[in-house]
Amino acid sequence: MKIRYALAGVMLASSMIGGSAYAADLIAVITPSHDNPFFKAEAEGAEAKAKGLGYDVISLVHDDDANKQSQLIDTAIARGAKAIVLDNAGADATVAAVKKAKEAGIPSFLIDREINASGIALAQIVSNNYQGAQLGGQQFVKLMGEKGNYVELVGKESDTNAGIRSKGYHDVIDEYPDMKMVSRQSANWDQQQAFQKMESILQANPNIKGVISGNDTMAMGAEAALKAAGRSDIIVVGFDGSNDVRDSIKQGGIKATVLQPAYREAQLAVEQADAYIKTKAAPKSEKQLMDCVLITPSNAAKLETFELKQ
């Protein structure tokens, strides 16, 4: 231990002189697959902020596999990371992995998804999904004229965000007795699955008027299937605020989405990690909600990589 402290002293002295010959502290950023631009954006947001603050970064993906996530946490521990920024692979399955990191002395700063335990991670910074889903639900009801048959595409069940968005939608939509849900299926946040599900749902229910989706990639899949079937009359509403959906909104395809401030959330997690590393100051509140914003043709042009430009 003494040797390590001595070494740290040398590193500190060196960095004070301005040298960068020694490795900087490491922050591990672990997210689901970057195939979904949402996860790519938050990983990049975290990386950019961490590098800007002088850290080295390893960026890893768990592909929504809790076992893989556990191995990646081991990797972060073995590499001596000073903090982990994590968008996790399941609200229950992740508790043990975060605990393992904590026991190894590495604090975790969760983004986007919650875990069903508090006091283990130092921060859980998540979008106010319920507030956002209510905005999306209200816009959907308005676009539908408060009536008609509709379909709901739900996200991955192990992710609390799938349930909370669905609840937010239904707490609004179910107030309207003339809104009739004819099918509700999970497409696991996935574009290709949403395309296939939408094709078969449409065959069974040609008389639908709208589709409300738990995220943007599924909305893109559904929109593509509807377009292929010549049913561009059907209203699609998404959730995330991706550039793909922004472009679709601008071209009159998808009608609305809900922006999650994902880029900022990732940066905020790194800022809080940095504060903890430097001063041992934990965030004031572990669970932090950030409000979402409705995106329609009127403000879509201001949207860029999960941030609304002023």
Binding site: E114, S118, V126, N129, Y130, S285
Partner: peptide, 17 residues
């Protein structure tokens, strides 16, 4: 009322509703 006192967003949302 604090979000910290709830298991997850779903309980917190139900409380709000």
């Amino acid at each position: 009322v604090s979000f910290n006192d709830f298991t997850n967003q779903i309980d917190f949302a139900q409380f709000g509703k």
